[in-house]
């Protein structure tokens, strides 16, 4: 199995993602520059966090129009796996690969803290080794993480079991106080209808070493690796 980490001007979590794949997942991984368009040899790509294009216009808007994203759409349509983290989630929404949008945080602050998220569905290629109700401790660092969508989209996400993570407190209770950015329905991450594209605001790649305060992120990368191994 081979992973790719897409790099835009302004990406800054690309090396963290690369490190996790090479060190903890133990698989080959390449950086993919945003002007490259050949994703052929990859089984999964990660769209990392950062501030692509300086968040000009809207976070993720300009990156969603870059050459590599046309290839990512085709890659996703072929059933390959796409993981968007933070700015990556914003880019996937802007590209139309995931529904909804991420707007300025409710309190306007850039939030940079550890949060808890509850696994809402283990029925995705990214959460297969986790259980519904599991609580993960993952850091967030964003100014535009406030997930919004219309009522029809929210209904559809619920009906199709596509809300993957919700912000919660340490005990797994979803409360408004535990919602760091005002996201609708406390949504921290969702997946596509075909379940092979996921976006989340928290940073699992920054939570893979006990030294960094949490290793709960490994469950997500480990699940993806298991999915890929089963397909190989």
């Amino acid at each position: 199995m081979k992973f790719g980490v897409i790099v835009f001007p302004g990406s800054n979590c690309d090396h963290d993602a690369y490190h996790v794949i090479s060190k903890h997942v133990g698989q080959p991984v390449d950086f993919i520059w945003h002007r490259d368009t050949d994703l052929h040899s990859y089984d999964a790509v990660i769209i990392p966090g950062g501030f692509s294009y300086g968040d000009y216009l809207r976070a993720g808007a300009l990156a969603s129009l870059s050459p590599v994203m046309a290839s990512v759409k085709e890659f996703a349509a072929r059933g390959r796996f796409v993981l968007g983290i933070c700015n990556g989630f914003q880019i996937l929404c802007e590209a139309g690969l995931l529904p909804g949008a991420l707007i300025r945080n409710r309190d306007l602050h850039f939030v940079c803290e550890h949060t808890y998220v509850r696994v809402e569905t283990s029925a995705t290629p990214f959460t297969g080794e986790l259980k519904n109700g599991d609580v993960l401790r993952l850091p967030v660092a964003h100014a535009e993480g406030n997930y919004v969508c219309d009522d029809a989209t929210l209904d559809q996400l619920r009906r199709e079991d596509r809300i993957v993570f919700r912000y919660c407190d340490e005990r797994g209770e979803v409360t408004e106080a535990a919602n760091p950015n005002g996201a609708r329905d406390s949504i921290a991450g969702i997946c596509s209808r075909e379940r092979n594209v996921i976006g989340l605001m928290p940073h699992p790649e920054r939570a893979c070493e006990d030294l960094l305060g949490s290793s709960d992120g490994r469950g997500i990368f480990g699940s993806l690796a298991t999915t890929l191994a089963a397909l190989a």
Binding site: L57, A61, L65, C93, P99, A101, I103, V148, C149, D150
Partner: peptide, 8 residues
């Protein structure tokens, strides 16, 4: 296509 995000 670019200037506005029709979702919001």
């Amino acid at each position: 296509e670019v200037l506005a995000n029709p979702v919001i």
